[in-house]
Design a protein around this nucleic acid. Sequence first.
DNA 1: TGGATAGATTTTTTT
DNA 2: AATCTATCCA
Length: 773
Amino acid sequence: MDEMFTDDPFPPVSPKDSLLENLNKSQAQAVTHGLGPLLILAGPGSGKTRVITRRVAWLLHQGVHPSRILAITFTNKAAQEMRERVEALVPQSKVHISTFHSFGVRFLREFGHLTGLERNFVVYDMDDREKLLKLSIEDAGLGVSASNVGSIGNAISKCKNQLLTPEGYQQSVRDYFTQCVAKVYPRYQARLKSSNACDFDDLLYIPALLLQKDKELRETLDNRWHHTLVDEYQDTNKAQYAIARELNINHPNLCVVGDPDQSIYRFRGSDIRNILDFERDYPNAQVIKLGENYRSTKNILAVADALIGHNTERKPKPLVTQNQQGKPVSLIIHETGEAEASGVAHRIADMVDGNRWNYRDIAVFVRTNALTRTLESAFIQGGIPFQIVKGLAFFERKENKDVLAYLRLMVNPRDDIGFLRIVNEPARKIGKTTLDQLAEFAREQGLCLMEAARRARLVPGLRPAAVKALMDFARMMDGLRGMVDGSPAEAVRAVLDKSGYKKALETSGQSEDQERLANIEEMITVAEQFMQNQPDGTVNGFLENVALSSSIDGYDKDSNCVSVMTLHAAKGLEFPVVFMVALEEGILPSSFALPGGPGDTTNTKEIEEERRLAFVGMTRAMHELCLGYCHERSFRGMTRFTMPSRFLSELDEARGAMELIDLTMMANRRSVEPEPWDFLPQKPKKVEPIQVKPKAVLTSLAAMDPTRTTTGPVPAVKEGSLVKHPNYGVGKVVEISGQGVLRRVKIQFKTAGVRSFILDKVQLEVLPPGTRI
DNA sequence: TGGATAGATTTTTTT
DNA sequence: AATCTATCCA
């Protein structure tokens, strides 16, 4: 039934020598490794991706059937890329490439029934998870205060990542907090099960436990794949480790690739020992080191190497390259965060104006998402086109989440969280009192809320109006359920029409609701796009796709704009020019890693991870790397003085590879205390503190909208512009908001009132200023 | 029931 | 600064 578990006939392919072309000795060795476990230690820029894809192709050429190969990547984007690359080498090969999480989903669709999950289970996102958690905390008779929801949630997540069951956890109860967790954890799991839902962690936790427990199943699946490849192995947690382990006992042809120095997901349960101890776990493993770096200049590597050398929990390994020395790595100091952002914008403008680089060659990395705001306004100010790579904000919007919740409830009526989310959205006069009574009834009868609503008549104490409202809702959902086997786009359409959601927004007087309307209609387009990629995709497939998509999946490498992203999102990418901003104590390293900080337990481990994070950022750069910090930064509404990151003072050994650019008022003064940058050559470049020069404010639509690829001279749409819309005629732009695909304009029309459009979708003719309406 | 308003609280990173 | 929560009033 599932393509991943079948053996289609596959035409044999003849081996090609070209598979070994342009490979160095160790790369070739890794590609052609025969049977048995293989650990590939691949430093940054060492051609890791090339090696994995060639190895897959090599195996195919050796006569291994594609369905016998399981390749696991870290993100969907990486999976997609690898799929394309393998296809390019071996057309029609259709190797199964997925992330651990999507593997987990498929696994559970097929075998979840062994643990009581039905095939139509849904995946809960963080939001749903939190709501369910709150209910579970109440179940346990504890108070729901904001702080304990978060920490209990983290604790439970950690348990699952370490394959610690609710029963097992009972033994680790030590204090009041762990006692709370011990009470909540089983209730939370019970609620998930009765909702026929999984959270992210379950996608690994349940398959891992099942494989360990069910010997027969383990054996069957082990025999299914003769070769397994796992990328980014340094970021696997215990659950992922167990899955890889259990699938590779009879056929121990497990090839893992990773770099301990790039392990940055400890907070999510990743255990660096998985890769450090691979040789212990697989004694006959062959180990191949890919040391040579083909990405970065000597200067960049010298700096990165100096930094990572300060980590103690690592196997030292040199970073070598035959690339050029390159420009020195700059350390740029600004007065304030705003000055820094605008400084970055100006440097970028200069690089592009001087024809040295295109916008798409440049990336700016930040430690936290909050830091992107300042950059965003500086880039808008300077007319720099940019994309912020973060979780698809589109699906995070309330209205879109609501629509998705409808879909989920269609697929899986037992989804109580989904039910609660939309039962009164749009308003159906179903309030808290009604729902409390309904929930009470459902609990007594052992029903899901949907089923209870269907029997609203039997609920004691309900007002007749409430009974009717609930029954109407249940009937409406029953009607929608008929669409569940159809196409996702049709299902979205049906939801918009039949739920009354669309109508409620249309008739609402609120101007934001126009925007919401545009958003939910956009959902149809999104679903249609999904169907184009996956013609036989189901409604649940669509939901799954949304749930498992990662922030980096939204990164468009073709659009010519600067990329702004967190260091975590930057993993696996490379850019000719990289900026890293806000290298300050408390930011990088994060205050959470600092002694005395919120996570004060074993802070050297935390600091080392922060150092690796900085290392990952630096090693993304091919030609130019600019590091920066500033003296004061406003955060959460308050302006604070900062301390330069300790990591900067650790670059001492690489001083020859660096230059200092001090743009602050302190530039020529000597401070009493030696500052961390004092090691740098004492010839600070004297540069004028950068003012915001009123450079081309917003030259063209295309310049501001990263999703556009056309570059012709398009007149600017600005606030106040007069425009002509094909349906509504002439109007005046009253507001422009958002960015990227979601950039939208609000237009006041002469007759049609105020309407909001997605800039990318709407056809507007810009009229010259002064046109008479 | 639901909307509005003032007050409180918040933030690391993510599949 | 921005978002969420509690409380009050129609």
